[in-house]
């Protein structure tokens, strides 16, 4: 029974992997084509690296700079959001709060998340100019934090709710402070959830366009999606360069996701913890 089942399992998983990868492969092939080959409608083409040269050699936005900025923005956003959301979500999910207060916080987070991002553009621009952080990665981190806090908070809230209360009580009896209990007991158990949340926060920051655009002004703070948007011009789309940029931009994020994904596997089991 085991053998055919395993084969079937991998067959299905592989099929989905192929479906997901097909457009990615197409993007890569497009990135090796000249415009005239992209629109030719035929299979044959001469591969060229010219689109990649445009990304790195042109005297305009260097994608090296943009990648650095994207990593800084994504990393800082991740750190801020996870720290702030985890503390808050733990507090609300584990301590006694009046329903009115906890309900208001949870609902307000959702409500903010429901509004179209475009309405925050003007206010955030003014806030960034006032705080004198306009055109720095910090301004973008500020916007990305508020955009991702609702998602992170709600996800972590649900994952913390799954952590058995008995473990925390045991830790308290052992003399752990509440912060220690949170850091040493709750976080490790909720690791898959935290890793998944962290991946989402980073990824959403990595590909966010609107605020990265409006809160940056020069390559000093510009991120990859802004650079990519430059290839969608008024009446002409530079498909080849855009495909190259999209393909290239996926690689650093994929490496990070690859590192993170192993934390999404089984957390510590109940038995292991007691010891």
């Amino acid at each position: 029974m085991k053998k055919p089942g395993t084969w079937l399992l991998h067959g299905v998983l592989m099929l989905f992997a192929l479906i997901i990868l097909a457009p990615v492969v197409y993007t890569f092939l497009t990135s090796l084509k000249l415009f005239r080959d992209i629109i030719s409608g035929s299979w044959a083409f001469d591969p060229t690296w010219r689109n990649y040269e445009q990304l790195f050699m042109s005297n305009r936005n260097s994608f090296i700079d943009l990648t650095r900025n994207s990593l800084v923005v994504g990393g800082l956003t991740l750190a801020v959001v996870i720290a702030v959301a985890a503390l808050g979500a733990y507090s609300l999910s584990r301590f006694r709060w009046r329903r009115a207060i906890s309900g208001l916080v949870m609902a307000w987070l959702l409500f903010v998340n429901m509004l179209p991002p475009i309405i925050f553009v003007g206010p955030f621009y003014l806030i960034a100019r006032t705080l004198d952080i306009y055109d720095t990665p910090l301004a973008i981190v500020m916007a990305h934090s508020i955009l991702n806090l609702p998602l992170a908070f709600w996800m972590l809230h649900s994952f913390f709710a799954d952590v058995p209360v008995e473990l925390e009580e045991a830790a308290a009896i052992d003399g752990c402070s509440r912060l220690q209990t949170f850091l040493r007991i709750v976080l490790p158990i909720a690791r898959p959830g935290i890793a998944a949340t962290a991946v989402l926060v980073f990824v959403f920051s990595w590909k966010e366009f609107l605020f990265a655009l409006t809160l940056s002004s020069t390559p000093a703070a510009m991120t990859i999606p802004v650079g990519i948007a430059g290839f969608a011009q008024e009446y002409n789309i530079r498909y080849g360069e855009m495909a190259a940029a999209a393909f290239f931009a996926t690689i650093p994020a994929l490496i990070l996701v690859f590192i993170a994904q192993k934390h999404i596997v089984k957390g510590m089991t109940l038995g292991a913890l007691k010891g």
Binding site: L213, T214, A229
Partner: peptide
């Protein structure tokens, strides 16, 4: 140098500060 998609946003912001 800004993407076409961001010109209006940036122009609007600039004249409001």
């Amino acid at each position: 140098v800004t993407p076409f998609a961001g010109m209006l946003e940036k122009s609007r912001n600039a004249v409001q500060g």
